[in-house]
Design a protein around this nucleic acid. Structure first.
Lengths: 326, 326
DNA sequence: CTGAAAGCGCTAACAT
DNA sequence: ATGTTAGCGCTTTCAG
């Protein structure tokens, strides 16, 4: 594999000059640049990132931390991140916590001198774990509890969803959160729901159901919680679910017990996973701009954003809500 | 960040010795080892992979090449690969072809000196593109047309699926392949179906439908093809789909036209994506051991396998096939 | 505008 | 069993 030195010799310049034209930094005469580019071209030179990484003691690796990867939402996020990162010659690597000591994983990240970490997992770990990274200037997303640089604005989506339910005659709407209780009341979706349901004329007496997501799978949680909801005997016209996958499980529970969706109960999910369009019925959902979210993460890590980025949400109407106003 | 040299000094040995205990190679007295481990521990030393990679001119990066990542099957595969790779201190990075010149992507891989490439994309590219890698000793999976080191044995799964349909009284079974025609007849699932349908007493007159997967999304293809199937007016008791996502789209097409699944038509998918259990009806599918597949890829890249690995498949019966024998 | 040269932290002969 | 040392290929001052 041809090295920078060979290119330099071939072009009759120094390696420093070659570096300059490649990295587009510093002054170079157009004549020299031409020669160098020609040499690169003819020799088919491919810069060795390994060496570059070491020289600047910083890799072009961006780490995505997940519990496990079996989650369509993450998939969409990672997809977007890869797209954005590769445009800047960065590489996105996936690290999973599943069955591993978090400290080991963190050590892995450190050993590979990742330049940024996007934490999509929900493990708990005291912040001192991250000292090593903050010290090294690694950009962290979602690693500490405090102010995130990108926030999903669920207000608009929730507002639309609740208006839509109201306009379609629903009054008894439950919320399947699935999160642990202490998280449930911190979640922006749940909070908005609770704080505003009376404003939309909904009953205050409907259930907000917690469980242990994301420890358990979203659809399992949805299925179980919907079962509880049915068993409770509470009158419910519609249910909003924290995520689409939860809605998938929850609707299934209703089907399994002989109910029809949306004839007997209406459903609204959240996330807008693209294939939920093909669910039966097609899922009405709060759409999150996952691509923008993924882009924002990368932009932050690459230092291209200063202020916090807000990700928009809106309702995507499909078939899972029935008009029951007479 | 503390370096190997500092550890060596602290322990009163040379860097080579430290390397030896870390990499567990060569002889070291237990006394020295103890001292070194103590130094590592007390100094909180984390080896710098960047330097190591450069020194051996080979990275610990394994690349996964995808068209895009929005595919639950890949997700499961990547998940498994990450698990296996991290156990050996390798890192899995995702590279996407979408909207990019394949040659650029390949150059990226080369620039990062990846030690292996798992090609999950389906782009065409003459093999000379890979010369640079074979020359460098990079392990390649699915990059050239010839013999793969891991093969999914669809026979058993298909056999079970077809027996099951036969035993449930189905005679007119269609196959939604979705692949382009020239690929359709190369695919093991399709081939098995065509070669054996008469043996199971199925009509030879049923459709095998092609399209342009994976250029188009599986569920879109499934939806469109199922529409064609319905329009054709051909009698069909059951349909087998190349993938679960295709089945999702296909069943939706039937629902949208007023049919009931499985009352009017039965469905069998393939892949056993875990959440298809929650489809309505729960999808009966040919289960592929995706974890084993992912593991096999990594094992091959890491040089832990010599002979070709075979991935097993079997039918997972759920609710999408109805017994129509009277 | 360009070149020389000193690292980056680690590996792997080669010595001892 | 352990130490010495010459790179790995690139970046980046510092001179000129």
């Amino acid at each position: 594999m041809v090295t920078k030195k060979e290119v330099a010799e071939y072009a009759g310049v120094s390696t420093a000059t070659v570096s300059r034209v490649i990295n587009g930094v510093g002054y170079i005469s157009s004549e020299t640049e031409r020669k160098v580019r020609k040499a690169i071209e003819e020799l088919n030179y491919i810069p060795n990132k390994l060496a570059g990484n070491l020289a600047r003691n910083k890799s072009n690796l961006i780490a995505v931390l997940v519990e496990d990867l079996i989650n369509p939402y993450y998939m969409a996020l990672v997809d977007a991140m890869v797209e954005r990162a590769s445009a800047e010659n960065y590489v996105v690597a996936v690290f999973a916590i599943k069955n591993r000591d978090v400290r080991h994983v963190l050590a892995d990240l450190a050993a590979n001198r990742v330049c940024g970490i996007v934490n999509l997992a929900m493990f708990t770990c005291d912040f001192s774990c991250y000292d090593i990274f903050t010290e090294a200037g690694t950009k962290l997303i979602n690693c500490t509890a405090d102010s995130s640089m990108v926030m999903i604005n669920y207000r608009s989506g929730m507002e639309e969803a609740m208006s839509y339910l109201r306009d379609n005659g629903h009054k008894n709407v439950a919320f399947i959160s699935g999160l642990e209780e202490w998280l449930t009341y911190k979640d922006a979706r749940v909070k908005y729901f609770i704080d505003n349901r009376s404003r939309f004329g909904f009953s205050e007496d409907t259930a907000v159901l917690s469980a242990d997501y994301p420890m358990s799978k979203a659809y399992d949680v949805g299925y179980a919680l919907a079962g509880e909801l049915i068993d409770s005997g509470k009158k419910t016209d519609a249910v909003i679910c924290l995520t689409d996958m939860m809605a998938l499980g929850a609707t299934k529970a209703f089907f399994d017990r002989g109910y029809s969706v949306p004839n007997d109960v209406s459903f609204i999910g959240c996330d807008d996973l693209e294939f939920t369009e093909y669910f039966n019925p097609a899922l009405t959902t709060i759409s999150v701009d996952k691509r923008a979210e993924g882009f924002a993460y990368i932009d932050y890590i690459l230092g291209k954003t200063s202020e916090v980025t807000e990700i928009s949400t809106h309702l995507k109407v499909r078939e899972s809500v029935k008009n029951i106003s007479e």
